[in-house]
Design a protein around this nucleic acid. Sequence first.
DNA 1: CTGTTAGCGCATTCAC
DNA 2: GTGAATGCGCTAACAG
Lengths: 357, 357
Amino acid sequence: MQVSVSQSERDRRAAAAEPVRRATMRDVAALAGVSIKTVSRVINGVSTVSDDLRDRVTRAIAQLDFQPNLAASSLRRTDGATRQIALLLEDVANPFSATLSRAVENVAREHGTLVFTGSLDEEPQRELELVRAATLHRVDGIIIAPAAQDHGYLHREIRTGTPVVFVDRPPRGLVADSVLATNAEGAREAVLHLADHGHTEIAFLGDETSIATAGERLAGYRRALAERGLPERPGRVAMDLPDPETAARALAAMLDSDHPPQALFTAQNLVTIGAIQTLQERGLHQDVAVVGFDDFPMADLLVPRVSVVAQDVMRIGTLAVQRLFKRIAGDDGPCREERVPTTLIPRGSGEIPPPGR
Amino acid sequence: MQVSVSQSERDRRAAAAEPVRRATMRDVAALAGVSIKTVSRVINGVSTVSDDLRDRVTRAIAQLDFQPNLAASSLRRTDGATRQIALLLEDVANPFSATLSRAVENVAREHGTLVFTGSLDEEPQRELELVRAATLHRVDGIIIAPAAQDHGYLHREIRTGTPVVFVDRPPRGLVADSVLATNAEGAREAVLHLADHGHTEIAFLGDETSIATAGERLAGYRRALAERGLPERPGRVAMDLPDPETAARALAAMLDSDHPPQALFTAQNLVTIGAIQTLQERGLHQDVAVVGFDDFPMADLLVPRVSVVAQDVMRIGTLAVQRLFKRIAGDDGPCREERVPTTLIPRGSGEIPPPGR
DNA sequence: CTGTTAGCGCATTCAC
DNA sequence: GTGAATGCGCTAACAG
């Protein structure tokens, strides 16, 4: 008790004490008895400094605990690099975004660069705000999984020297680098997989129509049906399911219809989860086949284990940052769209046969 | 094809074009025919500007698409605020960290502040590097879920005006604000819950001993055993399980021992998952009771549904940022440790009775 | 090899 | 109300 109080008291005083002024290059120069420019040389690792001076400067830096002000440095520097990039995602809390974030951080770290992350929540307005905030901070580049429908406004940022790379979703109204999953191919593979297990009544459950990836996955679904000569029945496609609850209800409605599906392709993570909820509630989880797009933790602990078309999220993120850093380094080659292939992972739910087989 | 090529070509030229110089206040002042200071006043919303001049400046800003350089601004500004904070977490890709990140972002947004995120991976060295990077960028404050054992080195940062708030784990060798879960109480409640369902053979599976939260949870486990007059049998406590695989193996070893446990308290997310894997593999998931610390997505889709002691992660994050912004605003009151209560969520796995009841 | 001068983009005195 | 001069912390271009 005594100890605790005294610690608090000590701390209060420490906090109350006027913040100690940070040492500047001038302070270091004065202490080392050299010019400020020599300090700058030592810090930036310029070799043309005598061992003696370098030594004095190094000691002064240590003694004053001098930490160069990066913002001031980049203000003066010719390239103007701030060593910070922005990463704008759907929602940093969802696993897909969080994994992308980690991939970007890993590469940024090698470049001595910090990463700003921000969530767009599918709100175009939020995208504009965050891009603006990023440019006010003069980030060296932006990676974005966009929410907006038109990205023409980014042309200006790119022209003023802030490269932009798109992840997960392609740019619209703008030519820019992008790294995307093979959405149509992955969806096609999933649906063919279900068809090859004998299913003819395969439903599609997907998220917001406005999202480009959702459209690509729907196209893949349709192509697979066509390839197998299966008709697309009315009411078999449910779109605009933003969360598990909506998805669960949409599936419930389908199951209550005259021709309930025997198999599901769920085109997005949360949709998959919602669908599984409904199947479990109705005791149908061993009867209705499911393949989901995008893997998720726990998928192989559920009963049945959930078959998915997995995206290589780390690879998508890594390719995107690498591309961004190439642009930052001055690469002005033509813009590229890179596609990262998906992988079908059969675990059980996708291999459930149709009734009567 | 033709179109695609021509688009690429157009873009290549756009990118190759020398980056357009960004407009500065001087440009705006010249175009508006006022002094640079008047522009500054308009931008900072100082009221003592005539309507006429304000109008001319506003138009010039729009015409030139002027975006003030925040870094330059904060360099000169008295308070030196950069409107960026750092958030250092265990791993931005794990759900706990990702949720914290989102909570911090939400509040930071209200303060017009951007958030740097970084992953420490339980490496003290990485913590030092990231804190240093943050101070080089002169962030306004730091929120940290620390990996290091001693945080005395942060005293210097705090004294030079960079407030630090700890989340999830308390500071050591330093007095600082912190926001933590009620780890011991939560663990105690979980173990009492198992005991009250008739269990006497309750095992503890936890992560790295070096992590303070792990110790608190172990203490809660022991207190609960003591309260119910249950002995702590040797071999019933497994610590230092950093990932699901290690946890799975540790549980397997316990189950193979002479006196296998009837119930498990798994003190961390990944440990819970590993334990469930082993139980499923052995077909024991309906026989061995499990309560996990920290909720996870899918917990209520597993069979049996997983009972947990849930942390209010959003609340922990929100309290931490709010505290940080108070410090940034100049609050120099004594440091506080806030504890956020946990909630026991019975879902099934924790209510499995012991054999023979 | 080293130091001096200038100025990045902006906010702060303090005049007018 | 408005503007001129000064400098935040640092690097660039020169000179020596």
